[in-house]
Amino acid sequence: MSGGTRLENANPLIFQRSGERLLTATDEDDDVADPIDDREIFDLIRNINDPEHPLSLEELNVVEQVRVTVNDQENAVSVEFTPTIPHCSMATLIGLSIKVKLLRSLPDRFKIDVHITPGTHASEEAVNKQLADKERVAAALENSQLLEVVNQCLTSRTM
């Protein structure tokens, strides 16, 4: 495609996007409390843009709803993501984007755990460790270049 840098995975498989969540009558009822559920967390992260392709993480099957678990009572969220190829150098960046998106979108009572689906990446442990380390995540977001890339992943695509 472009003459400069070659993409690592130039022609990925594209998956169908799930539609918007269907509205139910209870959603509109002011008196019923809706708990935060898996689908809601998935809706938060499925539209994150891939750093390489003009596609969302959902379309690349990097995130799936079955790999999202949430426990509203115990304030825990866990997200597994699957890099498109085992040597994907963007894995950390994708993980960081997911983490930042959740940090910005969830109440601060939640503990957020983002890690790679076991067995899908060559340097799985190292990436998981980086993502779990609060200090390193905070430090990464101080870096304006890194923040720029993360923000690009998080801007909503309206065009």
Binding site: L44, K101, R104, S105, S144, Q145, L147, E148, V149, V150, N151, Q152, L154, T155, S156
Partner: peptide, 16 residues
């Protein structure tokens, strides 16, 4: 709230 807060986070930061 998520959409609004997301946009406000992007304000003034790089890569918007």
């Amino acid at each position: 709230a998520v959409t609004a807060r997301g946009e406000w986070f992007l304000l003034g930061s790089p890569g918007r």
